[in-house]
Simulated scan of single mutants.
Amino acid sequence: MSTSHAAPASPIAQKVAGRVAWAKEKARRARDQRLGVHARLAALEAEVQENRHLNRRITELTDVVGELLVPLHARDEERVAEVLAAYRRSI
Rank of each mutant, 00 (worst) to 15 (best):
W22S: 06
L44E: 08
L35W: 01
K15D: 12
E25P: 00
V37A: 14
L44K: 12
P11N: 11
L84F: 06
S10E: 10
P71L: 05
H38V: 00
N55M: 06
R75Y: 00
A42Q: 12
E67W: 05
A9W: 00
T59H: 09
R34P: 03
A13F: 00
G36C: 05
A27M: 14
R40P: 03
Y87E: 11
E78Q: 14
L44W: 09
Q33S: 01
A86F: 03
E47N: 09
V70F: 09
E25C: 01
S90P: 02
R89G: 02
G66I: 07
V83N: 03
Y87C: 04
A21T: 10
R34A: 10
R29D: 02
D32G: 06
G18Q: 12
I91G: 12
I58K: 14
K24G: 02
E67H: 13
L84E: 00
A46Q: 09
H73P: 04
V48P: 08
V48K: 12
L54N: 10
R31C: 01
P11T: 05
I58R: 12
P8G: 10
G66E: 11
R79T: 01
V65R: 15
L35Q: 14
L54A: 08
A7P: 09
V70N: 06
N51L: 10
L69H: 15
K24H: 07
A85F: 12
D63L: 06
R56I: 00
D63V: 04
A43N: 01
V64M: 09
